[in-house]
């Protein structure tokens, strides 16, 4: 585990392939060991699955990388987000509550997803350059826009 390289940019197919190969290794049917051996394999499989979930989702991946850097986003970090962004989030959320039809909500969903991929793009750069302050700011934005997407999806299925 020396010189582990941590990167925000990952290939989803690569990650999935690695996940599958690790799970093959840990599969209980592949090993005829004793029970405690099987138990530890099962625990390992649970951990690998959780790790896969964390790494597959950009927001949790970013939060995890920040934690590894010793710079997690705390509840007290209220000043990371400037007022102009908070205003944008507030207005967008009000707009989502006022809009009721799928036709009104779909463009917002599209906008929200575009915003998130832009943020991920910038996050890749920030993590590469080791700019932790910028990475924290961008991850906080990603947190907001991912909550917004969650809400839009809730509403679309409600209609």
């Amino acid at each position: 585990m020396h010189h582990l390289q941590q990167s925000f940019a990952i290939s989803p197919t690569d990650l999935k392939d690695r996940y599958k190969s690790l799970m093959m290794e840990l599969h209980p049917d592949r090993h005829s060991g004793n029970n405690s051996d099987k138990d530890s394999k099962a625990a390992g499989a649970t951990q690998v699955t959780h790790a896969y979930d964390v790494l597959a989702n950009p927001l949790s991946r970013a939060l995890h990388l920040l934690e590894l850097n010793g710079s997690s986003i705390d509840e007290g970090d209220a000043s990371i987000i400037p007022p102009s962004i908070l205003m944008e989030v507030m207005e967008l959320r009000e707009q989502i509550e006022q809009n009721t039809t799928d036709e009104e909500l779909r463009p917002l969903l599209h906008e929200c997803r575009t915003k998130q991929s832009e943020l991920c793009h910038e996050l890749t750069r920030a993590f590469q350059e080791g700019d932790v302050t910028e990475a924290k700011y961008l991850t906080s934005c990603l947190q907001y826009w991912s909550r917004i997407e969650e809400r839009i999806l809730d509403k679309i299925t409600e209609v």
Binding site: L4, I10, D17, Y19, G44, Q47, V48, H50, H64, L68
Partner: peptide, 17 residues
């Protein structure tokens, strides 16, 4: 890279953040 990262993450997220 992804393999070691996945193994490493499996360990570090064992204590769920």
């Amino acid at each position: 890279l992804a393999l070691t990262t996945l193994r490493h993450t499996a360990r570090s997220v064992a204590i769920r953040s």
